[in-house]
Design a protein around this nucleic acid. Structure first.
Length: 455
RNA sequence: GAGGGCGUAGCUCAGUAGGUUAGAGCGACAGUUUGUGGCACUGUAGGCCGUGGGUUCGAGACCCAUCGUUCUCCCCA
């Protein structure tokens, strides 16, 4: 028997970690609900075809697939063999696998909307807090099982949804006391640039190259553009695009100049302006940064896109989202536009832990430990303990009659602030000894006063 | 998918140029102290040195493979 272990990229969470994570979940859930979003849960596994082809070529490779049961059935040997050959050739085969673990929450949500659009009231606002799985190689801030907290609105074209979702981001991070900046761009602007640069078909090459700017620098980006067939004039245009800097307003003006009369460019800028100016009136625009290099991987985005970055932290994005025109048409139900955002709880946790941002109050533990001084005494103490529990004070009794030393140490390790001693003396006098472990002070109190004692 | 670092006690690590019985600190447990913790002292337990193979008279140290872990790239939360 080898040592027990858990799969790569997964984790166990101890008491204090769970409590801190709960703090993040509760904060985000509270904000979601305050903004009118209602909960949804979907299964951990989806049909393979629901997920495949939705996340790009790279994404498909990172989907965890579940092996079918009954592969050893001799009657199905031929079809399974055939399916296996397809898998070896890099294709998918339902004879081998027909289910997969969900990769994100947006696609399952789109599937849900497509399945239930008849019953839903639009605009439909839902939030979802559940784990997702990716067969990525684990590293800092990257896990194979992690939680996402998504909020989406479908069935509305209004930019007010974008405005509202940005407010959700800002308010949630404000409550978590985590300083962030929210980068905003518009896929329409990128599309406009691609058109000005010689064609929509270049959009993907262009965004991939642009996205790498802060990592590899302009020279390398230029090289890549060159390899992808962009001519000198086009490269110069991209360079001017990437060199745009200044305040949000300055950047937008420079961009408008650059893209000129391009329809998509104009529309993209208009939308961006709308959202930014709206938040000038709410006073939340200080967190917003127009960033034309922001591209985002998921190719279903069509409008404004967002990405959240923790300030002064070495961590990838801790949240992202954007508008998608027609996600449900992938499932046969066209014309349901939507916009959504996502929080990456595990990365938020890592950053907050690193910066020591968790309030000490998130550590809930037992408030009172009742000492166990023998069968008869423990029975009396148990009765007293139950009255405290009825008042919602967290209590426990040490289960063994052990030496004081041991019971004290238990309380100390667990961070229990108070102990109650009920021994033979106390039972005779119908009182208990209460000791505060931090101050070391102790008092005697009649049983009848225990209920009103301010633990 | 590509590349680097690291695997020695429950934890953090040491282990000198390969040399015989593998160490420390913290923690755990027990005692000094059978109704008062934190401190101190004393003692005890706990290791197929990740796994498999190889080189060598001799391997925790060197080589190969494998697994795990961590980081970077790709991509992403």
């Amino acid at each position: 028997m080898s040592k027990p272990s858990i799969p790569q990229g997964t984790r166990d969470f101890n008491a204090s970690t769970v409590q801190k994570r709960q703090f993040i979940f509760q904060t985000i859930r509270y904000v979601f609900e305050t903004y009118g979003f209602q909960p949804l849960e979907t299964p951990a596994m989806e049909n393979v075809e629901t997920l495949m082809g939705k996340y790009g070529e790279e994404g498909d490779k990172l989907i965890f697939k579940i092996l079918n049961n009954g592969l050893d059935n001799p009657q199905k040997k031929a079809s399974i063999q055939e399916g296996f050959d397809k898998v070896l050739a890099g294709k998918n085969s339902t004879a081998i696998t027909e289910r997969a673990l969900r990769y994100d929450l947006t696609i399952p949500f789109a599937r849900y909307v497509a399945m239930n659009h008849g019953q839903l009231t639009f605009p439909f606002k839902r939030y979802q807090i559940q784990p997702v799985w990716r067969a990525d190689r684990p590293q800092k801030g990257r896990y194979r099982e992690f939680y996402q907290c998504d909020a989406d609105v479908v069935g509305s074209d209004s930019l007010l949804n974008e405005v509202d979702l940005i407010a959700v981001y800002i308010k949630a991070f404000e409550q978590l006391k985590l300083p962030v900046e929210i980068k905003i761009n518009n896929r329409k602007i990128l599309l406009g640039l691609a058109q000005v640069c010689g064609g929509e078909d270049k959009l993907i090459d262009l965004t991939i190259a642009i996205d790498k700017l802060d990592k590899i620098g302009w020279e390398k980006v230029k090289e890549e553009l060159n390899n992808k067939g962009f001519n000198d004039a086009q490269q110069q245009l991209v360079e001017r695009y990437l060199n745009i800097s200044g305040t949000n307003t300055e950047k937008i003006n420079a961009l408008a100049n650059l893209l000129g009369e391009n329809e998509n460019g104009k529309k993209g800028i208009e939308e961006l302006n709308y959202v930014l100016s709206y938040h000038q009136s709410t006073g939340m625009d200080q967190h917003l940064v127009a960033d034309f290099t922001l591209a985002r991987g998921l190719n279903y985005y069509t409008g404004l896109i967002f990405e959240v970055k923790a300030i002064d932290a070495q961590m990838g994005s801790i949240g992202g989202g954007g508008r998608y025109n027609d996600l449900t048409s992938l499932f046969g139900v066209p014309n349901i536009p939507g916009v959504g955002i996502s929080f990456g709880v595990d990365r938020i946790y890592d950053v907050m832990e690193e910066k020591n941002l968790f309030p000490t109050s998130v550590d809930h533990t037992t408030q009172v430990l009742f000492f166990n001084l023998g069968e008869a005494e423990a029975q009396v103490a148990y009765g007293q303990m139950m009255t405290l529990r009825a008042k919602k004070i967290a209590c426990e009794m040490y289960p063994e009659k052990s030496k004081f030393d041991k019971q004290f140490k238990y309380a100390e390790k667990k961070g229990i602030p108070n102990i109650v001693i009920i021994g033979t003396e106390e039972v005779n006098k119908q009182e208990c000894t209460i000791k505060n472990l931090a101050t070391g002070k102790q008092i005697n109190l009649p049983f009848k006063d225990l209920l009103t004692y301010p633990f």
